[in-house]
C-alpha cells in the first residue's frame, strides 16, 4: 500500500522483551561476559514485534487486528512511547493520546475532582488549563455530585467514564485506542463513538486495536493484521479482515482436528 501523507511511519521495527524478568545482584558483576553472547541471542529469540514496517495515513481510522499475543498492544505501547524500539524506527508526526488501561493513573483516596487535576496534569496540561476545562469535563462525565467523593466509592464503569472524560478534553492528533469499547454501559459507549466520529471529522487520526473484526470492519478504513509479531496483511479494511477471518477459520479447524 502506498501512503503519501502519513502521520505514523514504522520502519523495520523490532521489539524483544528482556529474557529474564528479574536478576540477582551477582549478575551485575557478571555482566561483562554475559553481554557478548546475549546481544547475539537476543535477536534469535521470538520477538514481540518482528521486523514490522507500515505507514498510517493522516486522518484515517486505522485498525490493528490479531489474536492474543500477536503484538497488537505492544505495537500500541511503542507508538505511545511507553516502550522503546530495539531496532528500526518509529516516526510520529503529531501528538498521540493513548486510551488504554483507563483510570490506572487515578489515586483511590482522592476525590473525582482532585483526580481530574492530577490526571490532566500528567497528560501535559498546566494547572491553569485544567481550571478552564474542569466544568466541561464534569459535564461530559455526567458524574455530578459523585465527583466530590473519593474514587474508592466509584464503580469500575464510573472510573472509566471519568478517565475518558478527562482524555476527551486533551488536544491531540492521534488517538490510540485499545479495546476500551468493551467497558462502560451502552449509553457511554455511544458517547465514546460520537467523540471518535467528531475527532475523525476534524482531521484526527485514530488507531484502533481489537480482536473483534466486526468492530474494525464498521469503524476503520485501513487495517493491518498481526500474527506472532509479523504483519500478515496490510491495506484496506475489507481485504485485511478477510485474511484475518481465513486465518481464524484455519485455527478453528486445527483445534477441531486435534480434539476429534
Amino acid at each position: 500500500m502506498d501512503v503519501k501523507n502519513s502521520i505514523i511511519e514504522i520502519n523495520d521495527l523490532v521489539k524483544v522483551y528482556p529474557r529474564n524478568k528479574k536478576k540477582s545482584i551477582i549478575e551485575l558483576f557478571k555482566k561483562k561476559q554475559q553481554e557478548d553472547d546475549s546481544t547475539d541471542k537476543r535477536f534469535y529469540r521470538k520477538s514481540a514485534i518482528d521486523h514490522v514496517s507500515f505507514k498510517i495515513p493522516k486522518g484515517s481510522r486505522f485498525g490493528i487486528i490479531g489474536h492474543n499475543g500477536s503484538g497488537k498492544s505492544t505495537l500500541l505501547s511503542l507508538m505511545l512511547g511507553i516502550l522503546k524500539p530495539d531496532k528500526g524506527t518509529l516516526k510520529i508526526n503529531g501528538r498521540p493520546l493513548g486510551l488504554l488501561e483507563l483510570g490506572s493513573g487515578f489515586h483511590p483516596d482522592l476525590t473525582g475532582k482532585e483526580n481530574i487535576y492530577l490526571y490532566s496534569s500528567i497528560l501535559g496540561n498546566r494547572i491553569k488549563e485544567t481550571h478552564n476545562i474542569i466544568s466541561k469535563v464534569a459535564e461530559f462525565s455526567e458524574l455530578g455530585s459523585s465527583l466530590d467523593r473519593s474514587i474508592r466509592t466509584y464503580s469500575s464503569g464510573m472510573v472509566v467514564r471519568l478517565a475518558f472524560s478527562v482524555l476527551a478534553f486533551i488536544k491531540s492528533d492521534i488517538l490510540l485506542i485499545d479495546e476500551i469499547l468493551g467497558v462502560g454501559d451502552f449509553q457511554f459507549q455511544l458517547k465514546c463513538l460520537n467523540y471518535f466520529e467528531e475527532f475523525s471529522k476534524n482531521g484526527g487520526t485514530i488507531v484502533f486495536v481489537s480482536q473483534d473484526y466486526k468492530t474494525i470492519l464498521n469503524f476503520c478504513n485501513y487495517c493491518i493484521c498481526l500474527n506472532k509479531g509479523k504483519i500478515i496483511s496490510y491495506g484496506p479494511v475489507k481485504k485485511v479482515v478477510k485474511v484475518f477471518r481465513e486465518d481464524m477459520e484455519k485455527i478453528k479447524k486445527q483445534y477441531v482436528d486435534e480434539i476429534f
Binding site: 505511545l80 511507553i82 493513548g98 488501561e101 490506572s104 493513573g105 500528567i122
Partner: peptide
C-alpha cells in the same frame, strides 16, 4: 508504574 504506563511523564 501506573504513572509511567500513561506514557506522558
Amino acid at each position: 508504574q501506573a504513572l509511567l504506563k500513561t506514557g506522558y511523564v
